[in-house]
Design a binder for these strands. Sequence first.
DNA 1: AAGACGGGGGA
DNA 2: TCCCCAGTCTT
Length: 346
Amino acid sequence: MENAFAERLVAWQRDHGRHDLPWQVDDPYRVWLSEIMLQQTQVATVLDYYARFLARFPSVETLAEAPVDDVLAAWSGLGYYSRARNLHKAAKRVMDVYGGAFPQARSELETLPGIGRSTAAAIAAFAFGEREAILDGNVKRVLTRAFGIAGFPGEKAVEKKLWALAERLLPETGIQAYTQGQMDLGATVCTRGRPACIVCPMVDGCVAAREGRTGELPTPRPKKTVPTRDTVMLMLTWQDKVWLERRPPSGIWGGLLSLPEFAGSGAAEDWACSLGNVDVDIAWPELEHVFTHYRLIITPLPARLREGSANLVRDGGGDWWPLAEALDAGLPAPVKRLLGRLAPRA
DNA sequence: AAGACGGGGGA
DNA sequence: TCCCCAGTCTT
């Protein structure tokens, strides 16, 4: 083999990789089962389930003949239960279409339910020695770091680049050791949190190690657009005072003074008007406040109490605050902004 | 308390 | 074709 990457990896796998995993056997059924279990689950967790599952369903035939509920029961606790349903479907297909013998080609394995490109390649390589590239989370981490590939690997263009690279790096021989080596290196050395670059066989050419970027690579998934919540804040004034309420000690703005909130302007108006002679203004333009986990859209609704029950009560309590005093108290930033706009006319 | 994980299925 | 989701574990 002429590429140093594969050469080093295979040598490392021989000396430091894992050789005693129960699915490192010459049996496509066991290889397949392990690859499905390992899809979203780590080795340590899989070991137990794998042994029990195999005891209950020792062959693709017994699996195919079992009721799907039994399969799900054996899977119970592993999560992602569609994996178990697909496993059962695939077992039936292997029996019906292939007479119980797994197909050998990656392309054909890929047609079975629950088997995508990477899983198909892993089965083809481990069970049949086919020269196929895998691209699971471990490989993505190793490749993005070693070659300094930025951009979220789930993104189409980045993933395409990684697949091309993975195929280019494939050795001519020793596909099992090479494939296992990538998985082992990613799982035990090139880990997400604190990669052990000091013992890594690839550290010499590694872009991330050289440039101190192991913390940035692989590029994390872009933050989900945070959900949006809407609230109406009633800016109720009486003489030169504003009605404020103390927020609960925990949660957002815990313990701060804030304006009373309502789900809609209707609810806010209803409450305000129940207090007596109240003028409700037209709502002010919406105010957006961004938290780490959601966006809050605030509709400020100004209202003035002319006369009536100034000793009003709302659950959670509240008080009339002279505007100047309120502005000095602990207030959420957007509430302070709102009260600031109120001040000139108070 | 949030992100990782591979494939399926819906848009 | 692309994007979002799922269920458990790890950090």
